[in-house]
Amino acid sequence: MLSAILTLAGLGFLAALGLAVASRVFYVKMDPRVATIADILPGANCGACGYGGCGAFAQAIVSGEGKIEACSAIDEEGAHAIADIMGIMYTESEKEWAVVLCRHTDGGVANTFDYVGISDCRAANLVGGGPKACPSACIGLGTCAAVCPFGAITMSADGLPIIDPNRCTACGVCVAECPKNVIVLAPVSSAVSVHCSSEDKGAAVKKVCSTGCIGCGACVRVCPFEAMTMENNLAAVNYSKCRVCGLCVSVCPTNAIRDHRDELKVRKIAVIGDDCNGCTLCARACPVDAIAGNPKEQHTVDPARCIGCGICADQCKRGAVSMITVDNTEDEASGPATVVGGGGR
């Protein structure tokens, strides 16, 4: 009896000794901040930061090598929390989202052949560039939706990706995987995009698509800010110049240019304050005649006509015109971006 107790106690002591030694000898020094930061990071492992997942990124931040700004998925609150832990500054970068530069519908772009095979755009693209008649068109098999780590992309019934701006973090995974290169990242604040990627001449585009850019140049002519360019028969928005007035959208004959201001909740209109002395400068400069008022009296803006270009605000010498953001959407403001799924790329 005693010998049994002693033997077991002895064995237990030896094992404990072994563990104690091992815990000293093989101790891995971990900065506790790594775990804390990793918990704050979104955990989607999208790879947009350039590191192999959120854990590796947390390590990089702690080592001073990684910049918080590299993470496109994190919200402001989280970013500031990490900045506090590290005692560094966080500068919010221009928020971006993914935009699909094609808006064909099933009726819009015909198929040149029946594609039967793997339901993946990358595989279909190997078969003569996919079945769409337009060589630049979205193939529509949903590879972007499958690879999105944030569940921000759904496929519409007519086979086009729909991007949920609340969920999109501009991580760029879809941009990298799209074999047609029709997805780009664009600033949320400049919510106007040309939804066509075809560099074919207008006649060729017209033949295969009802909503493609035909290179007519109407948008370039109408833009008050020289923000539209036309290269290789394709209009493009210069986001550094664009003031998001939407004039190009209204003149585009094929509706290839679209306005996402309401969707992204960045629509602005002008409001004239009490400082107005009725100089009429703003009313004369307004490209859409949205400002009315008698000289020497306070002017008013018709919110229904105002396109939010901000020319009036530039003209006003007294700073009486301010641009305010309005929410034209009916639905309730949705909550913060939620992360679903993750990994598995």
Partner: peptide
């Protein structure tokens, strides 16, 4: 479509 998978994987 095993061959298509092979071609796709190679590409």
């Amino acid at each position: 479509p095993l061959v298509q998978y092979a071609k796709y994987a190679k590409a």
